[in-house]
Computed example of a mutant assay.
Amino acid sequence: MLNEFKDFIAKGNVMDMAVGIIIGAAFTAIVGSLVADIINPIIGLFMGGVDFAGLEASVGEATFTYGNFIMAVINFLIIAFVVFMLVKAVNKAKGPEPVVEAAPAGPTQEELLAEILAALKK
Protein backbone atom coordinates (compact mmCIF):
# COMPACT_ATOMS: atom_id res chain seq x y z
CA MET A 1 0.00 0.00 0.00
CA LEU A 2 2.88 2.35 0.76
CA ASN A 3 4.39 1.74 -2.69
CA GLU A 4 1.05 2.48 -4.34
CA PHE A 5 0.87 5.74 -2.38
CA LYS A 6 4.41 6.67 -3.50
CA ASP A 7 3.46 5.93 -7.12
CA PHE A 8 0.33 8.08 -6.76
CA ILE A 9 2.25 11.03 -5.30
CA ALA A 10 5.00 10.74 -7.91
CA LYS A 11 2.56 11.13 -10.80
CA GLY A 12 2.92 14.45 -12.60
CA ASN A 13 -0.77 15.34 -12.38
CA VAL A 14 -0.77 15.23 -8.58
CA MET A 15 2.26 17.51 -8.35
CA ASP A 16 0.80 19.89 -10.94
CA MET A 17 -2.44 20.02 -8.97
CA ALA A 18 -0.59 20.75 -5.71
CA VAL A 19 1.36 23.60 -7.31
CA GLY A 20 -1.88 24.96 -8.80
CA ILE A 21 -3.62 24.92 -5.42
CA ILE A 22 -0.74 26.72 -3.70
CA ILE A 23 -0.48 29.38 -6.39
CA GLY A 24 -4.27 29.69 -6.44
CA ALA A 25 -4.35 30.37 -2.71
CA ALA A 26 -1.70 33.07 -3.05
CA PHE A 27 -3.50 34.55 -6.06
CA THR A 28 -6.78 34.61 -4.11
CA ALA A 29 -5.10 36.66 -1.37
CA ILE A 30 -3.84 39.15 -3.97
CA VAL A 31 -7.28 39.45 -5.57
CA GLY A 32 -8.92 39.79 -2.14
CA SER A 33 -6.63 42.70 -1.35
CA LEU A 34 -7.24 44.24 -4.79
CA VAL A 35 -11.00 44.14 -4.24
CA ALA A 36 -10.99 45.22 -0.60
CA ASP A 37 -8.28 47.88 -0.79
CA ILE A 38 -8.63 49.32 -4.31
CA ILE A 39 -11.85 48.40 -6.14
CA ASN A 40 -14.32 48.76 -3.26
CA PRO A 41 -13.07 52.28 -2.30
CA ILE A 42 -13.33 53.34 -5.97
CA ILE A 43 -16.88 51.98 -6.19
CA GLY A 44 -17.60 53.64 -2.85
CA LEU A 45 -16.53 57.01 -4.29
CA PHE A 46 -19.07 56.72 -7.10
CA MET A 47 -21.81 55.43 -4.78
CA GLY A 48 -21.42 58.15 -2.16
CA GLY A 49 -19.02 56.43 0.24
CA VAL A 50 -20.80 53.07 0.48
CA ASP A 51 -18.56 50.43 2.08
CA PHE A 52 -19.63 46.96 0.92
CA ALA A 53 -18.11 45.26 3.96
CA GLY A 54 -20.41 47.22 6.22
CA LEU A 55 -23.63 46.45 4.35
CA GLU A 56 -25.92 44.34 6.49
CA ALA A 57 -29.54 43.79 7.30
CA SER A 58 -31.04 42.58 10.56
CA VAL A 59 -34.21 40.61 10.97
CA GLY A 60 -34.89 39.90 14.60
CA GLU A 61 -31.78 38.28 16.06
CA ALA A 62 -30.32 37.33 12.64
CA THR A 63 -27.89 39.63 10.85
CA PHE A 64 -27.32 39.23 7.13
CA THR A 65 -23.98 40.66 6.01
CA TYR A 66 -24.77 40.80 2.31
CA GLY A 67 -21.89 43.23 1.74
CA ASN A 68 -19.45 40.37 2.28
CA PHE A 69 -21.36 38.38 -0.32
CA ILE A 70 -21.07 41.24 -2.81
CA MET A 71 -17.31 41.34 -2.17
CA ALA A 72 -17.08 37.55 -2.73
CA VAL A 73 -18.91 37.92 -6.06
CA ILE A 74 -16.55 40.70 -7.14
CA ASN A 75 -13.56 38.51 -6.13
CA PHE A 76 -14.95 35.61 -8.15
CA LEU A 77 -15.53 37.74 -11.24
CA ILE A 78 -12.01 39.14 -11.12
CA ILE A 79 -10.44 35.71 -10.62
CA ALA A 80 -12.57 34.20 -13.40
CA PHE A 81 -11.60 37.02 -15.78
CA VAL A 82 -7.88 36.68 -15.00
CA VAL A 83 -8.02 32.89 -15.47
CA PHE A 84 -9.85 33.42 -18.78
CA MET A 85 -7.15 35.83 -19.93
CA LEU A 86 -4.39 33.40 -18.87
CA VAL A 87 -5.98 30.49 -20.73
CA LYS A 88 -6.48 32.70 -23.78
CA ALA A 89 -2.81 33.78 -23.71
CA VAL A 90 -1.57 30.21 -23.30
CA ASN A 91 -3.73 29.01 -26.18
CA LYS A 92 -2.44 31.85 -28.36
CA ALA A 93 1.17 31.04 -27.44
CA LYS A 94 0.67 27.39 -28.37
CA GLY A 95 -0.36 28.38 -31.87
CA PRO A 96 -2.99 26.72 -34.01
CA GLU A 97 -3.81 23.08 -33.48
CA PRO A 98 -1.95 20.84 -35.91
CA VAL A 99 -4.10 19.43 -38.66
CA VAL A 100 -4.21 15.68 -38.38
CA GLU A 101 -4.93 13.91 -41.62
CA ALA A 102 -7.23 10.95 -41.42
CA ALA A 103 -5.57 7.59 -41.90
CA PRO A 104 -6.47 5.90 -45.15
CA ALA A 105 -9.47 3.66 -44.76
CA GLY A 106 -8.71 -0.04 -44.83
CA PRO A 107 -10.70 -2.62 -46.71
CA THR A 108 -14.27 -3.20 -45.66
CA GLN A 109 -15.39 -6.45 -44.10
CA GLU A 110 -16.97 -7.51 -47.38
CA GLU A 111 -13.72 -6.86 -49.28
CA LEU A 112 -11.74 -8.93 -46.77
CA LEU A 113 -14.22 -11.78 -47.01
CA ALA A 114 -14.05 -11.64 -50.81
CA GLU A 115 -10.23 -11.85 -50.65
CA ILE A 116 -10.40 -14.82 -48.29
CA LEU A 117 -12.91 -16.57 -50.53
CA ALA A 118 -10.68 -15.96 -53.58
CA ALA A 119 -7.68 -17.34 -51.70
CA LEU A 120 -9.63 -20.41 -50.66
CA LYS A 121 -10.76 -21.04 -54.23
CA LYS A 122 -7.12 -21.06 -55.41
Rank of each mutant, 00 (worst) to 15 (best):
T28K: 13
G60K: 04
A36I: 03
V90H: 06
L55C: 06
I22H: 05
M1L: 07
V83D: 13
G32N: 13
I42C: 00
K92D: 13
I79D: 00
I79R: 05
F5A: 14
K11F: 06
I21H: 01
F64C: 02
F69M: 15
A62M: 12
A10M: 08
N91I: 04
V50E: 06
A80V: 04
V90S: 09
F64E: 01
A103R: 14
E56F: 04
A118D: 12
F46H: 01
G24Q: 09
V90D: 05
E111L: 04
L55I: 09
I9Q: 04
E97G: 00
V73T: 09
L113S: 10
F81C: 07
G106C: 08
I42W: 08
G24V: 07
I116G: 00
M17T: 15
M71G: 02
E115P: 01
A103P: 10
M15V: 13
G54R: 04
V19D: 06
S33P: 00
V87I: 15
L120A: 12
E56S: 15
A25N: 15
V99G: 00
G12C: 00
E4A: 14
G12L: 02
A103H: 08
I38R: 11
L120K: 14
A118Q: 12
I39H: 02
I30N: 03
M47R: 04
P98W: 06
N40C: 10
M71P: 01
V59W: 06
A10S: 14
E97F: 03
T108M: 02
I9P: 00
A57C: 05
A114G: 02
P107S: 14
M1K: 05
E4I: 08
E97S: 09
F5W: 09
K92W: 11
F64Y: 14
I74F: 07
V99C: 00
A93E: 05
P41L: 12
V50S: 04
I116T: 02
A29K: 11
I30D: 02
N40S: 13
F84H: 15
K121N: 13
A114D: 04
A72K: 12
A118M: 06
N40I: 12
K6G: 03
I39T: 03
I9S: 00
A26S: 12
V35T: 02
V83A: 15
G49Y: 08
N3P: 06
E4T: 10
D16W: 07
K92C: 04
D51Y: 01
T65D: 12
M85A: 12
L112H: 05
M15F: 09
F52P: 03
A36E: 11
P104A: 15
T63Q: 07
A26E: 10
A57W: 13
M47I: 12
E4F: 09
L86V: 14
I74M: 10
A62C: 00
T108R: 01
T65M: 09
I23Y: 09
D37T: 08
T65W: 03
G12I: 01
A72I: 08
L2A: 11
L120V: 09
P96Y: 03
I39N: 02
A89T: 12
L77W: 05
G106R: 04
E101Y: 09
A119I: 08
M17N: 14
N91Y: 03
G95P: 06
L120I: 10
P41V: 10
G106T: 11
A89G: 08
A53C: 04
I23D: 00
L55H: 03
V73P: 02
